[in-house]
Amino acid sequence: MSKILIIGQQAEGKLSSSIAKVVSAAKLVGGDIEVAIFAKDGSGAAAEAAKLEGVTKVLQIDRAENDHGLAAIVAPQVVELAKKGYTHVFAPGTTFGKDLLPRVAAKLGAQQVSDVMAVLGPTSFDRPIYAGNAIVTVEAPAAPAVVATIRLASFQAVGSGGSAPVEKISVDVALPTHTRFVKLEAQKSERPELQSASRVVSGGRALGSSENFKVIYALADKLKAGVGASRAAVDSGYVPNDMQVGQTGKIIAPELYFAIGISGAIQHLAGIKDARTIVAINKDAEAPIFEVADFGLVGDLFTVVPELTSKL
């Protein structure tokens, strides 16, 4: 039977919402599902993880060094833990998981499966390649363990009606001092989080300035939507990097997505393939975004979007 170890990403004592989706993928593998929380004080995150349906046990590993979730520091502890009979090690496909898990896989001597989008069996998975323009089915060797990151847009979060036991454990390994956290500049926003929002409004290069982005924010606020952007909008400095949607930004799966003044490059589309409904507003009727949009409106965003916002 499978015994799955999930790395329970947390920040400031709170469990990342990505973990409920990783548990969902783990349930498709079946077997025991354990979530390990590496934190300075993981009680809060551990309690949240214990409630996730399908989790059989939560391991809480408190250590001052774990405070910022640095890969070089967490990895040796995961490796030590993973050797205790786990058949699978899963992490979310967030920047945290992507940074950490290959470090674990290399130490275990396992080839990692990145961005699992479907679980076909305990060792068989679908994953995207070429910015999602092809999907490959891979068989991973069962030994030493199956190590995989989970593509969040592909799985629904499990509910929180569970009550798994929480066990405090210590993992005795020496930790390196060669990596030191300096700071995190996080954007505080009242708007729904991009990766879990059911509606997202994104703006592109056409916005022309950060000042003009207010037309995007106004529409988003009316719709209670999260706000995203194309790479061009981020590179031009209109919005911060954490708003980028696409192959190298965030992969999202909202019910409703607005692409405004975005041409629809394949790298951008890679981030919105799972959106249920795509609306495109662009002044160029030939823009590639219209080939994937469920509803397209050809027009100048600076007149169309304010009109839409006022009529909603």
Binding site: A134, E139, A285, V292, G296, L308
Partner: peptide
């Protein structure tokens, strides 16, 4: 022993939708 690819497939195609003429139609 690495990952063995058994099959490569194209992602599900999104069908081209409709073009609306006005904001009212979109709403």
């Amino acid at each position: 022993a690495g990952l063995k690819a058994s099959k490569t497939a194209a992602p599900p195609k999104r069908s081209k939708g409709v073009v609306v003429k006005t904001v009212d139609e979109l709403i």
